[in-house]
Nucleic acid binder design. Sequence first.
DNA 1: GCTATGACAAGAA
DNA 2: CTTCTTGCCATAG
Length: 104
Amino acid sequence: MANSFERIYAVVKKIPRGTVASYGQVALLAGNPRWARVVGYALHANPDPEGIPCYRVVTKDGRTSPAFAFGGADIQRALLEADGIEFTEDGRVDMAKYGWTGLG
DNA sequence: GCTATGACAAGAA
DNA sequence: CTTCTTGCCATAG
């Protein structure tokens, strides 16, 4: 059983609608702040795309991943906007407003 | 068990 | 700002 993945998935699934979390954030909430890469790997596997909103996970800059292959890089933005998240002219998300602290 | 790879993050030039 | 380098951990072959 993939303990790491299970934990990461659990965290990603807990991300509330209208908020986004960075890989490092998810990794930290998952239990290890060094899982940033593992988080990406876990999301890449994405065994349950319906329960795991991987599109709510962005880089530390609040930008979408450059290799987001969840149907298209533009898809992620559309999904986030659908959650009520705004994008800056730089194509980034305001982590100060939409950044999930994990507290709730 | 080791090597290679990666949807990251932080630092340096 | 772009590009390169290092650090970290787990998965796949």
